[in-house]
């Protein structure tokens, strides 16, 4: 009975995912008919413009949205589990901002080495995660303090990004779009390495899902259940950072996906971490594709960045979580 329910949930999720992917791919500001789009995709003679629109603009954007949604969702599920904090996400604990600062430093100091941006982003994100972990472990900080420390890191790194942007006008021109997050002008070559990194993170996190679930019961219980707490937590933070950083390297500081998607996935599939890890990337993909589609369509031909749409959805959701937690505490 339960297996049947789970199968139905996944079938529905995949159907919705496929639906929004098709919608995003075939609908846009360019006024094209379906035969024109098909001819462009198939590379027929005389349909070069349509081919560029479909395969060089819409397809990379669609894949970017899928990778971004999946990568940030995986990162969010892992961080919320290993930190035992439903408010933890790559955005709220400053991991995204750390990755962003590292990218801006890399762009400023080594403009010729743009191929290394995902690695720079990873080190920035990992370093930030270590700071947060240090605060939460060494100082015995509570869940709220972790979030406050994340906000402080985000502010500090944001100031660093602004400062470097002022020093380097080339960086300043890209900083605005980068800080909001979006897929404008993204190419398939930008997504290839991040997509591989996100896939690797996904497989490792699925392999470790049993240990991650035990860790969510707290360090003492997890240790008594045979979990090497320090090792598993460290590996989890590495993969959560790597997954978020890979996304930041091509999408900029896309907020709220890593926060809201784990909650939605938990609501759909329950507390089982393995199910959350498999459902969250699909849900994340759906939400980011839809946000990107809305951003392109609502005020066409003008485009609203996907990061702005995500913030409009994510911020009220964040308030909703806070109010619900407050209600639970009061009860």
């Amino acid at each position: 009975m339960k297996n049947k329910r789970a199968s139905i949930i996944y079938i529905v999720l995949f159907a919705v995912f496929a639906g929004v992917s098709v919608l995003s791919f075939f609908c846009g500001s360019a006024d094209l008919t379906f035969p024109q789009m098909l001819s462009g995709i198939l590379g027929r003679e005389g349909y070069k413009f349509e081919r560029i629109i479909m395969l060089s603009i819409r397809l990379p954007r669609l894949i970017a949205a899928i990778v971004a949604g999946a990568g940030l969702s995986i990162s969010g599920v892992i961080l919320q589990s290993v930190m035992g904090n439903p408010l933890a996400s790559p955005n709220t604990i400053g991991v995204n901002a750390g990755a962003g600062l590292a990218i801006v430093i890399c762009l400023t100091a080594f403009p010729a080495f743009s191929a290394f941006l995902p690695f720079a982003a990873f080190f920035g994100a990992f370093f930030t995660a270590l700071i947060i972990l240090f605060i939460s472990r060494t100082l015995g900080a509570g869940k709220t303090t972790v979030i406050l420390a994340g906000i402080a890191c985000t502010s500090l790194f944001g100031a660093g990004i602004s400062f470097l942007s002022i020093l380097d006008t080339d960086v300043l021109s890209t900083y605005s779009a980068f800080s909001v997050g979006g897929f404008s002008g993204v190419a398939l070559s930008d997504i290839a390495l991040p997509a591989i990194l996100v896939a690797v993170c996904f497989f490792i996190s699925v392999l470790l899902s049993g240990r991650v679930a035990a860790l969510s019961l707290g360090d003492a219980v997890a240790a008594s259940l045979g979990v090497n707490v320090r090792c598993v937590r460290m590996v989890c933070i590495v993969i959560a950072s790597m997954s978020a950083a890979a996304v930041v390297s091509f999408s900029g500081l896309l907020g709220f996906v890593g926060l809201i998607v784990p909650h939605i996935a938990r609501k759909i599939v329950g507390e089982n971490i393995l199910k959350q890890l498999t459902a969250a990337p699909i849900v994340g993909g759906i939400i980011v594709i839809l946000s990107d589609f809305l951003g392109r369509s609502l005020f066409s031909p003008s485009e609203i960045s996907v990061g702005i749409i995500m913030s409009f959805i994510g911020a009220p959701f964040f308030f909703f979580i806070l109010f619900r937690r407050r209600k639970k505490t009061d009860a």
Partner: peptide, 26 residues
């Protein structure tokens, strides 16, 4: 100190098998 958890009783008790199962917890 018993941790607060949203797992069901069956899921919680399943953690007892953690030392014997793979890292995926199947």
């Amino acid at each position: 100190i018993l941790p607060e958890t949203s797992f069901t009783v069956k899921e919680l008790v399943s953690f007892g098998r953690n030392p014997y199962v793979s890292s995926m917890g199947m």
